[in-house]
Design a protein around this nucleic acid. Structure first.
Lengths: 216, 216
DNA sequence: TGAAAAGTTGACTAAATGGACAGGTATTGA
DNA sequence: TCAATACCTGTCCATTTAGTCAACTTTTCA
């Protein structure tokens, strides 16, 4: 569970708050797109308001300020991220584990491209708002998976490649199809990335990673 | 050669433009860092000026406006990019070609991380300032390389994987070490990426890509 | 050497920005 | 029905922003 210093869900006595959820969600969605496209500094409250079709003052009713809104958006994103992290479970066979993980990551790129881009922008900027998140579960998760990979290497189930680089290759390759979509579209001369594009890409990545790591 | 609508580089024929080159370069360097970190909208002329240690008005003496400055930075970056593109030459053996290219790309990530990040930010934002560049040489380059790969497949020199995905995997994996440095540092629990980190990563990528494509 | 050209910059402006707030309307529960 | 509370937003404000400009200094070269 990702938890960073962000907007307290309950602002005010919070009685029923039925409308609250809807309005918040509407604003958060618009904000995610705006932040993903222009970054924290480049995004403006005015544009977010227009995109969400609410007066700017309405945003300030639900979120204390720009940073609070950004924190809330980031928290949403990180919760999604966490779910994918845990897809890399410890089945028996390396082939199954990596195949499933690559599929899950690719599916995330397809269904949540803006979340992926938001995360990417934050990283490229030096991850100034992610330190709390990255320090905790993340490190532990990574360490644990690394040791699983190492045990596979020891058992001769895969080549002796540094596990970290394998993970990075999977992350990089799958996220690429969300983050660098314009480049892919122009290179391949296609108007949009279809669901079929993603499965085709996932198949290629699986082939190369599995065979490349000597997993059969 | 990358050429987009940007600041005209009118340097005096001999003497006059001596100071010009220095000042321009100083500003461009500061601007590259600022744009790479905060994107076009998020960057401010004031911060660029402070970073370059010149008055803000001095920037406007050399560059017509913010967009002009950004265009000049982008042009610099794209010229570097072009040089790496052409590293993927047509040697005889696929193994050599891809090994050299991966090394070259990885070297670029190590020596020009901010250029890589600038390019990435621009892409994630939808590449609004790159259309001219991406339409021209880029498409042709890509098409030509694809056909080389296809001939390799036909000759049985490599597995039948879609060439485009192989290229994307190489791009994604190598650029990752520049763009997502914070994530890598935290995951691997190291303070900085050393030259050895990059060669180690390049080796892993080469191993996986070559073997994964059935190139031996 | 001296005047023309190149380079420099403090002070200014208009617009955009994040944010505050008072006074309003809608919803709720008793 | 009727307060109490949640929800809404037009209007304002201080600050930041990109960009201008005219006065100034330095460099160039004939």
């Amino acid at each position: 569970m990702a938890h960073l210093m962000t907007e307290s869900i309950l602002r005010g006595p919070y009685k029923p708050g039925r409308i609250r959820e809807q309005s918040r969600e509407l604003i958060l969605q618009a904000a995610e797109a705006e932040f993903a496209c222009h970054g924290f500094r480049g995004a403006t409250m005015q544009r977010i308001a227009e995109s969400a079709q609410v007066p700017k003052a309405n945003i300030h009713y639900y979120f204390s300020n720009k940073l609070g809104l950004y924190g809330a958006v980031l928290e949403n994103t990180l919760n999604l991220w966490d779910a994918i992290f845990n897809e890399l479970a410890s089945h028996d066979e390396p082939a199954d584990v990596l195949s499933c993980y690559i599929d899950a990551k690719m599916d995330f790129s397809r269904t949540h491209p803006t979340a992926s881009r938001l995360f990417a922008k934050e990283m490229i900027s030096g991850a100034p708002h992610l330190s709390a998140y990255l320090q905790q579960d993340y490190r532990l998760w990574f360490k644990q998976r690394m040791s699983i990979f190492e045990s596979w290497v020891a058992q001769g189930k895969m080549d002796d490649v540094e596990p970290a680089h394998v993970i990075f290759m999977i992350w990089a390759s799958t996220q690429y199809y969300a983050d660098f979509e314009p480049q892919i579209l122009i290179a391949t001369q296609t108007p949009t990335l279809t669901e079929q594009s993603f499965t085709s890409a996932a198949d290629s990545i699986k082939h190369i990673i599995l065979k490349g790591c000597g997993i059969c």
